[in-house]
Design a protein around this nucleic acid. Sequence first.
DNA 1: GTCGGTAATGTAACGGATTACATTGTTGAC
DNA 2: GTCAACAATGTAATCCGTTACATTACCGAC
Lengths: 332, 332
Amino acid sequence: MSTILDVANLAGVSVATVSRVLNNSDLVIDETRDKVLKAISELDYKPNMLGRNLRRSSSKVILTLVPNISNPYYSEIVKGIQDTLSINDYQLLLANSEAEWDVESKYIKLLEQKLVDGLIWMDATARSKNVRKISQDYPVVICSQYDATDLCYVSIDNEKSAYDAVSHLINQGYRRISMFNSNQKFRYARLRLKGYQNALLDHGLEYDENMVEYVEFDEEKISTSFEKLIIEKNSIDAIFTISDFNAQFIIREADKHDIRIGKDFGLVGFDNLSFSSIIKPSLTTVDQPRYRIGTEAATLLIERIKGHRESCKQIILDHKLIIRESSLKSQN
Amino acid sequence: MSTILDVANLAGVSVATVSRVLNNSDLVIDETRDKVLKAISELDYKPNMLGRNLRRSSSKVILTLVPNISNPYYSEIVKGIQDTLSINDYQLLLANSEAEWDVESKYIKLLEQKLVDGLIWMDATARSKNVRKISQDYPVVICSQYDATDLCYVSIDNEKSAYDAVSHLINQGYRRISMFNSNQKFRYARLRLKGYQNALLDHGLEYDENMVEYVEFDEEKISTSFEKLIIEKNSIDAIFTISDFNAQFIIREADKHDIRIGKDFGLVGFDNLSFSSIIKPSLTTVDQPRYRIGTEAATLLIERIKGHRESCKQIILDHKLIIRESSLKSQN
DNA sequence: GTCGGTAATGTAACGGATTACATTGTTGAC
DNA sequence: GTCAACAATGTAATCCGTTACATTACCGAC
């Protein structure tokens, strides 16, 4: 593996000149440049970024932490991030955080250790204290809603969107509405729970904590929870679930039990994943401007890296309730 | 941002000693170690990996190129990779290659530039020549089937698996079988096309290139292709498609046209994605041992990095045709 | 012909860690 | 008491680029 010195020697110039050629400085006359380029191609020389980055203390690489890359919700956000970064000459790398602090913290080390220049952190599960600490010390943008003004984040209003979804079910005539939530380590999960509670209370319904199930993104747990609520309690008539991803499993379960979703049973999902319009019944869901979340986050991050301290902003984008078949109610 | 020198000064020792503490050398007496550790925590010192990696010329980071992270097919492979790497003290980063050489080549630079130690390259779309060149020069494992013995790869037998799928349709009684393929830049797509052709010929059916559509993973194109084949030609009675992902859209289209899949129309997908057992009708598909593909690839890569030149192996894992409702045929 | 200015290139410090080798200090054998 | 052996620590070279500053060479103006 050849180094810049090898190139310099072969071309008969100094390393400085080679470096200038590499960095397109206009201080090199064409003749010299040609000699250098010839040497570079002859040796098949590739600059070692470890050296360059050490000197520049920057890598032009951004890391995005995704709790679960197999959840299509995130991929559209990532696309937004990718497009924005690539325009700005940054490269994007992804890491699957599994939504676990142990994993998250390992990847955050890449930031602390200067291997990446910045971090877009989706649905951080770390404690607020940790999140705050890290994002004070390094360029970080969080994709989820926080209440602090000293953090950079992009999100929808999770509480309000859950409120809207549940209110819709109530307005349709459903009364015993369960929530299939995800782990409370997710801030969005806590916020949406609040929205669920408030919607119930505001419409004169009682909040019963036994009606909330915590199921993660796991088919089996959903099946168990569903049976428990349906069979043992035999009383719920609708579910608001944290993700369309879960909703597909709920539909399947309902089917097993001959429960007709969109007729005697209401279902509202979240995220407006592509299949939600395709499955039967089509799924009422809350749409987030996912691509835009990505572009905004990337833009914010780049500003922060450039050092605009004042760029620490909080961006809340609009959500939209998309009403489809699964939340209709037959008049009986 | 403090450096190892700051720590050394504060602790009243040399940088060498600090480095020894950092690397758990047993050449440091407890008293000194304590002083150093105290200084480290006092300064909140984090070793700069750019320095360390430059010296060690290794980053302990592996890159995996995924054509499309939103395709759940890849996520299970990634999980296998992740688990294996993490046991071996490597970190995994992902990149979305969009299955485009322009993007791929940008990320491959990270390898050439020593920012990552190795690459797992899924469904490389680069020309064979490029793939071969890169994988000769750097530690690379390819996840897809190649015919060369000088490459490291892990895959199923794509040709055989397509052959099996199409033979199954024929055995069920379907005769006018179309293939919805993806872009021929994918090697697996070319191999599966071969399998499709051979299955037809071996069963005395004619191969008609107009029966093959190239649709990518795009709902709209699928819709167009479907209508073209169904309405204009009004003659196909089955589809073998390259991915379950596409199959879901085909099901939807068929529904629009009142075509009863699993009765008068056969459909076989590929990959056995989680939803394929859930949708209606449930989908006949080809299962690949995805997690295992990941673990094998990661194991191979680590061996290559360790320098076992002889570790350049080709691994072909077993596939399995999973027969469900979508390929049944009513007796009429 | 001399001088100033500038264009082109070179020299060497630097970034932050690791580590071979050098140094110091301690212990134990004789 | 001397010396070898080894433990603990320090010094400085090294990894590979970048870039401030130094140097050289050439030009035109006077």
